[in-house]
Amino acid sequence: MPPADAAPGALEVLDLGPHAQPARRSLSGGHPGETGTMLPPFIDHHVHLELFEPDHLAAGGIAAVVDLGANPSVVARFAARDPLPHVQFAGQFLTAPGGYPAGRSWLPAGALREVRSVVAAPANGRGSLYDAAETAVDEQVRFGASVIKVVLNSTAGPVFDPATLDAVLRAARARGRPVAVHAEGPGMAELAIDAGVDVLVHTPWTDELPPVLVARAARAGQAWISTLDIHGHGAATTDAARARSNLSRFARAGGRVLYGTDLGNGVLPIGVNAREVSALAGAGLSAPVVVAALTDPWPHHEASAWSMDGLATFVPGPPPARLDHLGTWLAGARVLPVEDLEMIDR
């Protein structure tokens, strides 16, 4: 029902959370006087900038992206550019020798770093036998990586053993970097969760995860990047159903969900992906939780670290009344300077 003090005939709309503010566009700019909703800048937390053209992301409502696998020298140049989007990145995919995505036709040159295995116990207090992991992590950090990306895909080749995964985690945390893992295949999500990795870069989809494992991931403060739409692009598939079920249970357990699309992986919308948003809603996430997933500052702790104080995501028109219409509405978003918007009293 509309609130008691609403004007006669007022329509009920979705509550988008505390950061949503009715606004109109300045009379001096484009689309003068257009009304809508101002939200914090949207972030796509999983993209591959070498595999698509990013210059139109801002026109589609995305102000910033996290690249999760690229040649570090190339993606560092993307991050240094003035045009939007703002970029944080992981650098190379770290994988076991011969592991995924080695040999893939889509893999950009220089985007893969194979790390040899280590023994479980270091030879001395410094842990000198972890040098292979330390070297790989340091290479990414020197290029400016904010996060370290590890691949555990048992369906397509060898993966790190627990000792080597732990070595990468130790090296990354010693340098203040979170570790994000691609976990695919039987037991890979469990390996990543048991190791204490910070983020899964895809909602697990190859297995229906046991409730105790999902709860353990949520309790540990792990975050999952959604990427639900890559499983069928809106079509009903078994993988899509498993991913939606896993994400639903993770969110109900209090898990932190990040919006991410894996943009560059096949044909996906440049900007807010309405199907991804709809899939999040279909997994039981409320409108404020979806907005939180879109605006979460990861891999930073604070939004100010992105240096986007002068930007906002603006969505024209009134918010929808129904959750299943949220994706279509948010797909109309665009990134604007805050100075081009005027607040409207609620």
Rank of each mutant, 00 (worst) to 15 (best):
M1G: 07
P3K: 06
P3Y: 01
P3R: 07
A4N: 04
A10D: 10
E12P: 10
V13A: 15
L16Y: 05
A20F: 05
R25K: 05
S26Q: 01
S28I: 11
G29Q: 05
G30N: 13
P32L: 09
T35Y: 02
H45E: 00
H45Y: 01
H48C: 05
L51K: 10
L51Q: 11
H56T: 15
V65I: 04
V66K: 00
N71A: 15
S73P: 03
V74D: 14
V75F: 03
V75P: 00
V87W: 00
G91V: 11
G98T: 07
G99F: 08
G103M: 01
L107V: 07
L107S: 09
A111T: 06
E114F: 03
V115A: 04
V119E: 15
A120Q: 14
A121Q: 15
R126A: 14
A133Q: 09
E134H: 14
D138I: 06
R142N: 08
A145L: 12
S146H: 04
I148N: 05
V150C: 05
S154P: 14
T155P: 04
G157R: 00
G157S: 04
V159T: 15
D161N: 10
D161K: 12
A163M: 10
D166V: 07
L169V: 10
A171H: 04
R173E: 08
R173V: 05
A174Q: 15
R175Y: 11
R177Q: 02
R177S: 04
A180M: 13
V181T: 08
H182Y: 05
A183D: 02
E184T: 15
A189H: 07
L191N: 07
A192N: 12
I193H: 14
V197Q: 08
D198M: 07
L200M: 09
H202R: 05
H202S: 02
D207Y: 06
A217C: 09
R219G: 12
Q222F: 10
S226G: 12
T227I: 08
T227Q: 01
D229I: 08
A235M: 06
A236R: 12
D239H: 10
D239R: 13
A241E: 04
A241C: 11
A243R: 06
S245T: 09
L247Q: 03
R249M: 11
R249W: 06
G255Y: 07
G255S: 02
T261W: 00
L263E: 01
G271D: 00
N273R: 12
E276V: 11
G284Q: 00
L285A: 13
S286A: 15
P288M: 09
P288W: 02
A293N: 07
L294N: 06
D296Y: 14
P297H: 13
P299W: 05
H301I: 14
E302P: 01
S304Q: 13
G310R: 15
L311H: 08
T313L: 09
V315W: 00
G317P: 09
G317L: 13
L323Y: 02
L323Q: 02
G327E: 02
W329F: 03
V338I: 15
D345K: 11
